[in-house]
Design a protein around this nucleic acid. Structure first.
Length: 271
DNA sequence: CACGGATCCTGATGGC
DNA sequence: TGCCATCAGGATCCGT
């Protein structure tokens, strides 16, 4: 489900509400991708100071330590005043003095991991090799070009890998490549400076627009208050196989790259 | 070392 | 209606 825009929309929807809250109790459901890394009871009494984001990770900064939250493919967070009744896919509840933060994740590819600080091994293992934040000033077109120049894999795979730039998942990789006029199968190293410049701008544009529209709700994404996003309605290629390109009318094509669907316009996007 | 594929898990969907 | 195959927003691990 969640790529950078969905994670950021989620963060914006509850960060202010939970800031300053004291953790009363933490309940875990079925196992998630990785173990928590501490006893849930050890978190009682700690204060959530703020909520940050790094790539697709949400960071609950505590007065001592932090919790790294990942939503995987099917995870979503809700923030409620009172403890709602738990369903079979609710695998984490953080009850606080300001309300309850709940992780709902049917597929359980998500995770919650405790780390003493950002430099601790538990945090570095997850965050240590992440690329730059696409919405931050450090996301630089020249650096992107340098990074892509030596990569033999397809540009789509390199974007998804998150080593050069984070947060771009399957939907937004497809959309950004369309905006940039680049085929998802183009070799990363084959892209010239001018096209990388265009890709750089496209990544920023598509992510910013998606955040502004509340993210994409393909099946069930919603922010922490249950409100759906609307970006998917304006998608240029994602999920539109066989439908006419919104620019030129050519039927949108679908192919498989690394077990994922790539959608593209055969006319607007070049190698 | 860089790449591509298999893999974790559950639910929705479509064909028969 | 049921059964089966396929697919889904992610990211790690493993073999080549």
């Amino acid at each position: 489900m969640p790529e950078l825009p969905e994670v950021e929309v989620t963060r914006l929807s509850f960060a202010d509400r939970i800031a300053g809250a004291t953790i009363a109790q933490v309940r875990l459901g079925k196992p998630l991708r990785w173990p928590l890394g501490c006893e849930p009871a050890a978190l009682q009494g700690r204060v959530v100071q703020r909520v940050d984001r790094r790539g697709k990770y949400l960071l609950l900064e505590l007065d001592r330590g932090l919790l790294l939250l990942h939503l995987g493919m099917s995870g979503s967070l809700r923030f409620a005043e009172r403890m709602p009744q738990a369903g079979p896919h609710d695998h984490l509840d953080i009850a606080t003095s300001r309300g309850v933060l709940r992780l709902h994740d049917p597929r359980r590819f998500g995770a919650v991991v405790y780390a003493a600080d950002r430099q601790a091994p538990a945090a570095q293992k997850l965050l240590g090799r992440l690329g730059v934040e696409p919405l931050a000033p450090e996301f630089d077109a020249a650096a992107l070009y340098d990074g892509l120049r030596r990569r033999q894999a397809s540009i789509k795979q390199i974007l998804l890998a998150g080593e050069l730039v984070v947060g771009v998942g399957n939907i937004y990789a497809c959309e950004a490549l369309f905006l940039a006029g680049i085929r998802p199968t183009a070799r990363a190293a084959s892209l010239g400076r001018r096209r990388v410049l265009r890709l750089h701008a496209a990544i920023r544009q598509v992510l910013e627009q998606a955040v502004a529209r509340g993210g994409s709700t393909l099946r069930d994404f919603a922010n922490a208050h249950g409100e759906a996003g609307s970006f998917q309605q304006g998608a240029m290629v994602y999920g539109r196989a066989g439908q006419p390109c919104r620019v030129c009318g050519s039927p949108i094509r679908l192919l498989r790259q690394g077990q994922r669907s790539s959608y593209f316009c055969p006319t607007c996007q070049k190698y």
